[in-house]
Write a protein that binds this DNA or RNA. Structure first.
Lengths: 400, 400
DNA sequence: TTATTATGTTTACCAAATAAACAAATTTGC
DNA sequence: GCAAATTTGTTTATTTGGTAAACATAATAA
């Protein structure tokens, strides 16, 4: 029998799918909003208050949320019970870099409980990096209070990642090629591991808990040490593409200039907007993004201003393209790109408008990311929480 | 009470939503696949065959589908009943151009029943164009067989369109600005009217019934008389953006060249890949896309070859960007862009690969559109069928 | 203090999907 | 050519998630 063309329609739904969806919906609302009253849940979902009671009880029995009476009534009528994410449910975030490995613990609800960073003296092999990560995870795991349950590990990789089987295709900055990272880290820790590109993860974090919150069509650009990556939220869902490589916004070509980016493509945003050239003109070496930002905002040098203008213009041209393509309601800039934005917001906005259609940039909002150093910790944990949030009834949590 | 951050989660689901989804699913499957057996429907949806019986009966009672016994058994076991889209349900497609107005009638299932084109002697005002369209709709409507029911009218506009209220923001080729087209045509015909950009509609048509069928991540480029437009299918759903202006792929900047496109942006794909300059170098004037394609594929002139190479290179650079951004499994080219593709497929593919990351273009398929002159008729009707397909139980159809 | 309002909680109910049982129509095997 | 195997159609009883109604409860408002 020929298979049917499903044309983007997902499968048929039955009662199980219905229940799964509603449980997932409640848990996501509690996760992203912190503490939520049952009455808020009824209005937000449109479901009957009996149903909300039932769903919340179900999640509470699974110890995913805590339901308690309100301690501060807000208005007329009986106070509504408050539902909060359980602080006993956590996930680990792992961020391997060429000079360090960072591991964090984040609760359901997005609070960073602890973080540990281990400096490295040379660019790590995958084996070395996995061993370091596993050691830090193990340390943090032992310090968790009794009763804590673990959703898994989310790894933020500075490179291209195939999410389906957890293989790092190419991470130029680390020198990794075709590394089955998820499998390796699962073996070392016994926990389920999900991996993704760092910029995609940053995008999801800013969308869920940061500057892009509530903007269901967001274009996100992140400049890490390994170049410029991106992420896009389309109607509230992250753009992934057929194999998960979508969102390589830094490698989009905008000019005929011959300069190449870290992947050998010329005229791209990444080739024109370079952190290193800014550091050089400011005579800063090994500065953090915070230090760089201070220098940018206080510099009085004409040469620096010239360079900043060039970079803002290039960034604006690139963002104009994305406005034409995505018609977003928000653009969020992270890493040192946020400093360019803060340096001359007006110039950047003008450049964007000049290189996009008028209608597409109406009511467009541009912001800097606000999660700072917690960005990849929160995002990595978000990745690890994914399966729990999508199917709360089926997810299996590990004990501490 | 503060409103909750819904974070891209849609509302709670109840029994009604479940039923609506399943009815919609069945109707869409029948619509896009033509004739489908009930057993195919059970396997495609995962629903029980009792449920499928019930859903199909429901749709049949509403006279949206026809259920009949199979006339040619395919294998072991009792032959499965066949469900077909009702040919009595139709929609109109309207395509206003600067030198003509075209109206078509298309059945559920995507068959073009009739088409009528009225040449115009001058670029029409919105009023004139609406009057012409209404007249043609009325003519075709009277010729429809008794019992035919009409879902509505879909209008393909060569310009930027705000779908929410049916206003044409800007259609440079027609000289229209801020025209409440949907309202005007509804008043003139008494039928519900939906409007959209021509390239978006072409994209939807090729995805539902043409070359992009089954490719859930498709980038589509369409070169009409009014420049280059685009459309993108992301996980089976068309990219719309916050106000519906997404997909302006022709206005994406890829080079520093000063040449401008029809919207005044420089270095864009549309400014570098121009139908007019090809026509000029071939000394063709007023040729159709079909005639242009023949000339391109048979020309022996060095100058023409040079120009074709330049245009293919520019198109390839632009498509490379889209590969980096969307990681699609298919790219579909329509209008004279299909001729460029056919002229030198290998060169285009090489240019795309040169300007995109290796992983992102793996297993990428490039095709020409296959719906030809029916493209905008089928797509326009698809637009008009939208509400019926999304909620078969609630849709109201007009009589012929 | 009482009325009003909003929510909590329990109970009976509804309807959509399903499983089970049997019927029917085809192919396969002899 | 006929019985067996297979697949689907159809009917019936069942399951279950969401809902509406009724009443209880805890706040504010009068």
């Amino acid at each position: 029998m020929e298979s049917l063309n499903a044309a983007g329609i997902d499968a048929g739904r039955n009662r199980d799918a219905l229940r799964q969806h509603n449980l997932s919906l409640i848990l996501k609302l509690v996760h992203t909003n912190g503490s939520v009253s049952r009455s808020q849940l009824t209005t937000a979902t449109g479901l009957n208050r009996s149903t909300i009671l039932n769903l919340v009880n179900d999640l509470a029995e699974r110890k995913l949320v805590i339901s308690s009476e309100s301690d501060s009534p807000t208005g007329v009528g009986r106070p509504s019970h408050v539902v909060s994410p359980s602080p006993e449910v956590v996930a680990f975030a792992v961020h391997p870099e060429f000079d360090s490995t960072t591991v964090g613990v984040v609760t359901l609800g997005g609070r960073v409980l602890a973080r540990r960073r281990e400096p490295l003296h040379s660019a790590p092999t995958p084996e070395k990096s996995v061993a370091e990560a596993a050691r830090l995870v193990s340390e943090l795991r032992m310090e968790l209070p009794k009763g804590t349950r673990i959703a898994g590990i989310g790894v933020t990789v500075p490179g291209q990642v195939r999410g389906t089987d957890g293989v790092v295709r190419l991470a130029p900055h680390l020198g990794w090629v075709e590394v089955p990272l998820a499998t390796m880290l699962t073996q070392a820790t016994g926990l389920p591991v999900t991996i993704d590109n760092d910029a995609s993860i940053g995008c999801m974090a800013e969308y869920t808990f940061g500057s892009a919150r509530g903007f269901e069509n967001t274009v996100y650009l992140y400049a890490g040490s390994g170049g410029i990556g991106g992420g896009v939220i389309v109607d509230g869902v992250q753009l992934r593409g057929v194999a998960g490589y979508a969102g390589e916004l830094g490698h989009v070509r905008i000019s005929s200039s011959p300069g190449q980016d870290y992947s050998g493509l010329s005229g791209t945003i990444e080739s024109l907007v370079q952190r290193d050239s800014l550091l050089e003109s400011l005579k800063l070496y090994g500065a953090t993004d915070e230090e760089l930002e201070v220098e940018i905002l206080t510099s009085r040098s004409d040469a620096v201003r010239q360079l900043l203008h060039e970079q803002i213009d290039a960034l604006g041209a690139g963002l104009g393209n994305f406005v034409n393509i995505f018609n977003p309601n928000a653009i969020v800039l992270d890493g040192f790109l946020a400093a360019l934005f803060k340096y001359d917001e007006g110039r950047l906005l003008n450049r964007i408008r000049e290189s996009s259609l008028a209608a597409s940039s109406e009511r467009l909002i541009i912001r800097a990311g606000e999660l700072g150093s917690n960005l990849l910790m929160i995002g990595g944990a978000e990745l690890a929480f994914g399966s729990l949030l999508n199917d709360p009834a089926e997810a299996v949590l590990a004990n501490r």
